[in-house]
Design a protein around this nucleic acid. Structure first.
Length: 551
RNA sequence: GCGUCCGUAGCUCAGCUGGAUAGAGCAACGGCCUUCUAAGCCGUGGGUCGAGUGUUCGAAUCACUCCGGUCGCACCA
């Protein structure tokens, strides 16, 4: 049992004891919240429980705190103090901190991996960009956020499966085929008009070039129809392969790639049939409409058009039905904020299908703005993109790109400063953290040369400097931080934690030496930096950022 | 018009399930390299927490209204 749980239990028992002593009125207890006080003069932990209870007990909060304090004792407690309007501050025996640090040291590489939680698998679906072009920075943020969330949930012990939904059916595929076709004919000297709503990116030209390089002009004499069919398939496969490759380079992989095509037409028909049977779909003006207004949507939505072709929503209804039938306990979708209007209707569809809509959690990612030399990087008018994820990785590196995408809350707009991301100095948080790790590795190298090895049983009590105790306490918070960040789906908390931990290490490093101090102290410090390096590595691992041994 | 998200130091942002003097980094200024990586450390200055009202013993935090910005409001995907 960790120290916080011990404290919580002690507070609760004290409150119950006071109730049975007749000092507090019987009733439900307020929630016990423990926090690390803003200043260390206020002790190791503090609770506002007495203040929270003031209303319930109809008593002066300081009086409540006194009664509690009189009933709390344990070998872990040095003393308590009542402060301010009724805070109860706890000062722990110093061995408590060292004992719990020793357990972390003994856990070694396992520290940071929380015990497996027994529950249904959580599915995280993200990126899911159309395989019609290259990924841009918006997808990059989604990719970083999704993969980090998956890593985070796994570290917290949740069973997780990641998935990419490939929109490989419908208009956009035809469009891709037409665009490649136009480029193909163009390159072979034919005079063609480029489709108005076609994909204008350079990558389409590259695809056409590769087709020519491989197969020459053998598709030239076919009928347009035949050629489009072939190009659709060729282009799509190539686009998907490039996508996978680029994502892998960005440290992003998926457990499952789900093809939209597999939903056409049976799964969609089945889903529509279910809705028809339970009366949540109706016909109007030749089309089939989902009664989404019954579930809080502004208006009903077309599912099957009057020409019989299903809408995008139809596929999504079938897709979400498929997900739910696979038995996930929770399905998390990471979408761009520009899709927020879509959330309501998908929820409506899930309810209409008879499932629990609260199983769906949609995380909306706000937009990314790129800045170079203080100027907003404008989007290209023609392609509607600014720079691709690939170009970004090339310019600032994968580590910096991932960290920058992850350092802000998902629902804040992100200003991505390209110059800062490239800087190799203390302005750049990525290097600041990585540098801490590299410094520790350097210490290890030299310790090894000097013949120092990690002691089996270091005297941790020798770590008395305030930079040392601050570092120890921060490391002890890590497991809880993972738990919280996972619960909030907030990978940015880990980004911040890693940064703060690195800061505490740098302070320690500047103040305390390892080589050339008394052997016992050196051993204890070596143990401290071993754990520090591990936690930095672990947290960067969640973020998908590397932890170099040398810089 | 309706809805989303955001508004905290000159800049970029933490803090938001209400609590003790509102925190970082950058920028500005002043220090620290003959010993483990100065991509580092230590210090100084800097804030009507967008505005208002309400709830509360207590509000940056909750509720409502307003202001500013953002993205969206298709039988497109």
């Amino acid at each position: 049992m960790d120290i916080k749980e011990t404290l919580e239990k002690a507070i609760e028992e004290a409150a119950r004891a006071a109730i049975s002593d007749g000092v507090f009125p019987d009733g439900e207890l307020a929630k016990i919240v423990l926090e690390v006080p803003p200043q260390k003069e206020f002790g190791d932990f503090a609770t506002n429980f007495a203040m929270q209870s003031a209303r319930v007990f109809r008593m002066n909060p300081r009086k409540i705190a006194e009664e509690l304090s009189a009933r709390i004792q344990g070998d872990w407690l040095d003393h308590t103090q009542i402060a301010g309007p009724g805070f109860l501050n706890f000062y722990l025996k110093s061995n408590v901190v060292y004992d719990s640090f020793r357990r972390i040291l003994e856990a070694g590489e396992a520290y940071g991996q929380l015990p497996a939680k027994e529950m249904d698998t959580i599915q995280v679906e993200y990126v899911s960009a159309n395989p019609t072009g290259l990924l841009h920075v918006g997808h990059g943020r989604g990719a970083a956020a999704g993969s980090a969330l998956v890593n985070l949930l796994r570290a917290a012990g949740y069973p997780v499966e990641s998935e990419y939904y490939i929109n490989d059916a419908g208009n956009q595929m035809d469009n891709l085929a037409r665009s490649v076709n136009a480029r193909y004919l163009e390159l072979l000297g034919r005079n063609v008009e480029f489709p108005e709503d076609g994909y204008h990116g350079e990558d389409i030209i590259d695809t056409a070039k590769r087709i020519i390089a491989k197969d020459g002009n053998r598709y030239l004499d076919m009928s347009e129809e035949e050629r489009l069919e072939i190009f659709k398939d060729l282009a799509y496969k190539e686009k998907l392969a490039v996508l996978k490759e680029d994502l892998e380079a960005f440290q992003v992989t998926f457990d499952k790639w789900f093809s939209e095509r597999t939903l056409h037409p049976e799964a969609i028909h089945e889903a529509v049939q279910v809705l028809r049977e339970n009366g949540t779909i109706y016909e109007k003006e030749g089309a089939l409409w989902l009664k989404s207004t019954d579930y809080g949507d502004d208006k009903d939505r077309v599912v099957i058009r009057d020409n019989g072709v299903p809408t995008y929503l139809a596929a999504d209804i079938a897709y979400h039905r498929n997900k739910l039938e696979r038995g996930f306990g929770k399905i998390i979708n990471i979408w761009g904020a520009d899709h927020h209007g879509y959330v309501c209707r998908v929820r409506a569809a899930i309810s209409a299908l008879g499932y629990d809509a609260s199983k769906l959690e949609v995380l909306l990612l706000q937009m990314v703005s790129l800045y170079r030399s203080g100027e907003l990087v404008k989007m290209s008018k023609r392609t509607g993109q600014s720079i691709t994820l690939n170009e970004l990785m090339e310019e600032v590196g994968t580590d910096a790109a991932r960290y920058f995408f992850l350092m802000r809350s998902l629902d804040s707009q992100l200003d991505f400063d390209l110059d800062l991301a490239k800087k190799k100095s203390n302005d750049n948080p990525v290097y600041y953290i990585q540098y801490a790790h590299a410094r520790i590795c350097s210490i290890f190298r030299q310790a090894e040369e000097a013949g120092k090895v990690l002691s089996e049983n270091p005297q941790l009590e020798l770590l008395q400097d305030e930079t040392e105790t601050a570092l120890i306490k921060k490391i002890e918070e890590y497991a809880e931080e993972i738990e919280k960040a996972a619960k909030e789906y907030a990978p940015q908390r880990i980004a911040r934690y890693a940064y703060e931990l690195a800061g505490l290490f740098h302070s320690f490093y500047n103040k305390c030496r390892i080589m050339g101090v008394d052997a016992g102290l050196a051993e204890a410090r070596l143990a401290l930096v071993t754990v520090t390096a591990h936690v930095i590595r672990h947290s960067l691992g969640i973020l998908g950022v590397s932890a170099p041994e040398k810089m």
